[in-house]
Each structure stands twice: as C-alpha cells, then as structure tokens.
Design a protein around this nucleic acid. Structure first.
Length: 570
RNA sequence: CGAGACGUGGCUCAGCUUGGUAGAGCGCUUGCUUCGGGAGCAAGAGGUCGCAGGUUCGAAUCCUGUCGUCUCGACCA
C-alpha cells in the first residue's frame, strides 16, 4: 500500500470523546471512526487487523474440527419467544418490525437459530459430535457502551456451537474448544488468563471459562492464587480463608446499645471503636419478589451472583427503602437479624464469628454480643460474599488471593440441553429414543480482541502490533522522496516485498522525516525500514517498533529477513 | 436507568457571565524557502454555532423543549 493513497489520515490530537488508550490510538492512527455510541466503522487499517484476527480464529476453529457457516443477524421474534428469552433478555435485545408488523430481533447471540438449524439437519446420534461456528456481527443495545471497541453495541464475534449425544462428549468438545482458544490468544500476542466463570444469562447446567486479557482498564476482576493455578472471575470465585483469629474476643452477652444516628458500617466502627470485621451487615434483598435478609461481615461485600445461585432464584435485587422499613420496622441503616420476620441467610465468614454487632431494627439502636443461631434463627449458611484480596487460597491453602483486572475476550460454556430442549433439537439415541442434544457454546469478541491487543501493545508514541496481526509486516519509510537514490531504493524494496507476498506499507508522501516517523510509530507496524542516509551504500535501517532497537543492515539482508521467515520477528 | 458534563469548520478549543451578526492552533489548498524527529513565511478555502420553538430591533450568547455524545454509578454474554 502506498501511504499517499491511504484512505485514512492520522490525527495529531485525540478526539475529546475517547478515554481508553486503545480507543484514542485506534482513532488517532486512523483504524476506526465512530458513527454513533458504540457503533464504529473500520477504516482500511482497522479492517486489515480485523481480517488477521479472523484468519487466526478460522484456522484454529478449522483445526479443531469445527465447520464454518453463517447465520442471519435478523431473527424472527418467535424463535426468541420459544426459548423464553424474548422477555428475559430485556432492552439489550434490539427489536424491530418489518412492513407487515412482524416482529424481529437483531441477534445478540445465536443459540436459538443454531438449535433451529440443527433440529432440521441432524436427527441421529450417529452424526454426532458436530461443531459449527461463524464470524458475524452481533447487536446488543448496551446500557452503557464505552471504551471504543471494548464495549460496542455492534461488534464482531466468533461464535461456535457444539452438539453431542452425551455429557462425556460435551466434555471432549469443550476441551477441544478450550485448547483452540489458548492457541488463538497466544497467536494474537495477547497476555491473557483463562479463568472459571459464571455462565450468566446464557445459562446452562455445565461449567464455563472466560479468557481474560490482562489490562487495568478491564471491567472484570480476576481472583488468582499466587501459588496454585486457580483463577476465577470474582463473580464466581470461592471466598478465601481469612487470617482473622476465630476467637475474636468480643463479648457474647447480648446487649442493646443506643447508637444515635449511626447508620453505616464506617460510622458504627468509629462509634464503637471496633474493627468492621467485628460487625455484621444486614442487607435486605427481594428474591423473586420475596424479601430475605443476608448477613455478611462488616468488611465484606455481598456477591449477588453467588447469592442468587445459593438462593436458587431468577431475580435478585436490593430491596427498596420502603420494603426495608416495612420489614424491619426501622429506618434504613438499622436493620438486624434479631427478631426479623423474614428468612436470614448467613455468610460462612459470619457463621464463624463468635459474636458480632448488628442493627437493632429500631432507630438509633444496635445489638452487641449477637451470636448467630442463639439470638436469631439461621435459615442457611453459605459462601455469598466476594473473595477479598490477601486471603489464603481456599484450594491449595498455600498461596494468597490476588486481584487482577481483565477484559473478557472469550467465553466457553457447557450449555447442556437448555436450548435444545426448548427448540426441539433432539436426536435418536442407540435405542431409537428421541433425546435433546447436549450443547456447548463458545464465543470470541473479535473486535474487542483487537482493542484488547491495542490496550496491551502500545506506548506513548502509538500502537505496536504483534507481527501476527499487524496491518502490514513492514513500513518502508524513505526519509526524503526527493532524493532519487532513496526513492528508487525504497520503491525497489517495496516491489520486491510485494512480489514475495509480504504486506508492506510504503510512505511515499513528500513529508518531512519527523512527520513520517511520528505517523509510523502511531500506526505501529512491527518493522520500519528507514531508507535514508545509508541508501547510497545500499544500506537501510531496521527499526523494531516494540523495542525501538535500530540497526543498519544491507538492503538484501532486510529483504531476506522479511521474506524468509515471517513469524520470526516480533 | 440515576447523576453530572459537553455539542462552535476535519481535529483540539476560545467566545456565552455582561445579546450587536464568528475566532485561534492543528489539518487542507497554492507559492517560495527548508528537509533524519510533528518546519518557516505569504496568500487562500472551509462554519445555517446539534435541532426546533420562544424572548428581543437584534441570539453562538438568554429561556423552553428535543436530539446527540461522553464520564461516574447501577446493570450486563
């Protein structure tokens, strides 16, 4: 590509709307342009990177035995009604009507469609297992699109679906995809971690893993052990073992204390001179509409996903102030389990406390010396809080739990029969009996992956792509196009690279050296070949974008390195 | 969805408080000079000031509504 004819141009300043590094740089370097909130156009440079990512994904999917197909983004509402998700999915599902007032949705995912296809194509267990995949644009009307490509409303996704006759078969299919994902993210030059995950709205009975790109801007928190391989999304991670001594030393004599205007844990801690870990927090939730109380230690946070799972309910939200006051008979801030007329669920860490301080269910009053079980009935105990940093790993009991931020670039699920049962996707088993097929689903956010790599591979000057996904392999930069020696050498090298199938970008613009170098570093092609003052001797500069390392080499050597082994430099 | 902020040439912004008919830098065009780290000089082009109402002799500026965008939160494969 001749840079003089490149469609996009670089921006000297970041557009004011951009916040994330990847967003700013992708805009400035001319990879993407925004069209609406969470909706982006890919300019030629951006599309090249996207294409590279797609190719890697396709190669690994094919290698894992998956077959590519393409399903429609426009999907009849009936399909979504049948699975029960038309209403459950909520406003994130973009709904529209055709001229006949027939209802459609723009696909945020394709479990329904693929189950429908399967139902009509395959009816015998003898044709299993089978896995299909597609690379396709998805639509999700996010409440809050942000950070450019990291959370868009229209985005490119690879989704795959496996069909098996048995759970053992699903395990094998899942393992195959999991391993393909490891290869894909490695090939993309991503620093990532595979973690245990919660299956969320996509649901299903089996396990689930997320592939997290490590980045501070990530919206997910990963809980990882310093000693063993255990790592999980905080949504799912088992709480660690607390270093806190179990005997505590607090009074176990139940006693009511006047605590005027003390509503928060912080205030209570200060008022009583007791650490938050000696206090108990009572939260009232509406669980499928029914009020329940949850008790966690003052220094802990309720994990609503774990709580939801533990309660076995569909909907869970904090009760509103009116409900709290009706249930406790006290203003918000004084709720406590003693004498509470609703079921009380107790976190494991609270259950281990010899005694604690709780709200009095009466304005300006708290109980101290409260013992769970003795002073109030415990409906059930369980792990319903977030793991905390620094706790001992509950798995190996050796290491410490550490938190990391991550961007979810891939997610694999064992779905089981949730969609096949609803969609009538069954096969005849060996006895000729119809049974729902066992499904898995596997997603990679390709456009998000692009942004995640940009998030990890950049410096103050611009992007620095890994060779495997860079828009070009080499950026040929003649310092002065007017110098005939430089110009003809640069042109000759460019032609040679193209002839050997090496993608090259030639900066043939009549710009000053500073402009060319700055643009080159912004665009981030892995290798820059500077054709300058050494051109007369047939030498060029080889500049590594990522390290900044520069060496003067004969032009033949530079060409040989680029043509000979494409993958050898990074 | 709750809260906050912002919409002025392609980009970054000033002007708005105190209404008087639109500015700067970057980018773009042309010419001359310069030429290995975002050049200098000169001359140009480019804007219904998001949109719609209202107030006023007069609105980028004041008022109302509306649309859009961003940030924080809530929520969420």
């Amino acid at each position: 590509m001749r840079q003089s004819t490149l469609f996009s141009s670089t921006l000297r300043e970041s557009p004011a709307d951009a916040e994330a590094a990847s967003h700013k740089l992708l805009l400035r370097a001319g990879y993407i342009r925004q069209l609406a909130a969470g909706v982006y156009a890919y300019l030629p440079l951006g599309l090249r990177v996207l294409g590279k990512l797609e190719r890697i994904v396709r190669e690994e999917m094919d290698r894992a035995g998956a077959q590519e197909l393409l399903m429609p983004a426009l999907q009849p509402a009936e399909l979504w009604r049948a699975s029960g998700r038309y209403d459950v999915y909520g406003p994130e599902l973009i709904r529209l009507k055709d001229r006949q007032e027939r209802e459609f949705a723009l696909g945020p995912t394709h479990e329904e469609v693929v189950a429908e296809l399967f139902r009509n194509e395959i009816s015998s267990y003898r044709r299993l297992p089978v896995t299909v995949y597609q690379v396709q644009t998805k639509y999700r009307d996010e409440r809050r699109p942000r950070f450019g490509l990291l959370r868009g409303r229209e985005f490119l996704m690879k989704d795959a679906y496996s069909f098996d006759a048995s759970w053992e078969g699903l395990d094998a299919s899942y393992r195959g995809m999991y391993e393909a994902y490891l290869r894909i993210f490695e090939r993309c030059g991503l620093r990532f971690r595979a973690v245990e995950a919660d299956a969320g709205a996509i649901g299903g009975e089996g396990g689930s893993h997320e592939f997290m790109a490590l980045a501070d801007i990530g919206e997910d928190t990963i809980v990882a052990c310093t000693h063993c391989a255990q790592a999980a999304n905080v949504e799912r991670a088992a709480s660690g073992i607390d270093r806190q001594p179990a005997d505590g030393g607090g009074s176990t004599t139940l006693e009511k204390r006047r605590t005027p205007n003390v509503r928060t844990i912080e205030q209570l801690s200060r008022f009583l001179g007791a650490a938050p870990s000696r206090l108990m927090k009572t939260l009232v939730y509406a669980a499928d509409g029914e009020p329940v109380a949850v008790l966690v230690r003052g220094d802990h946070e309720v994990n609503e996903i774990k709580l939801k799972r533990s309660l076995g309910v569909e909907r869970l939200e904090l009760a509103d102030a009116a409900t709290v006051e009706a249930v406790t008979g006290a203003p918000v801030g004084f709720a406590g389990p003693v004498g509470l007329p609703i079921p009380v669920f107790v976190d494991d860490a609270v259950a281990r406390m010899p005694s604690g301080v709780v709200g009095g269910n009466e304005a300006d009053m708290h109980w101290i010396g409260v013992v769970p079980g003795r002073d109030f009935p415990v409906e059930r105990t369980g792990d319903v809080r977030n793991a905390a940093e620094g706790e001992t790993c509950p798995h190996c009991r050796e290491g410490e739990l550490r938190f990391h931020r991550g961007i979810e670039v891939g997610h694999v699920f064992k779905l089981g029969t949730k969609y096949s049962a609803a969609g009538g996707a069954t096969v005849a088993d060996a006895e000729g009996k119809e049974t729902p097929v066992i499904m898995g689903c596997y997603g990679i956010g390709i456009s998000r992956l692009l942004a995640a790599v940009a998030e990890q591979r950049h410096d103050e000057r611009g992007l620095a792509w890994p060779a495997s996904i860079a828009p070009y392999r080499a950026h040929i930069v003649p310092v002065a196009m007017r110098d005939e020696t430089q110009r003809s050498l640069a042109e000759a090298m460019y032609a040679t690279l193209l002839r050997h199938g090496v993608e090259a970008l030639l900066d043939d613009r009549d710009e000053r050296a500073g402009v060319k170098f700055a643009d080159s570093e912004l665009i981030g092609v892995p290798v820059r070949i500077v054709v300058g003052k050494h051109a007369a001797e047939g030498n060029v500069e080889w500049v590594d974008r990522a390290t900044g390392e520069r060496t003067v080499v004969p032009k033949e050597e530079a060409l040989a390195r680029l043509i000979g082994n494409d993958e050898s430099f990074r």
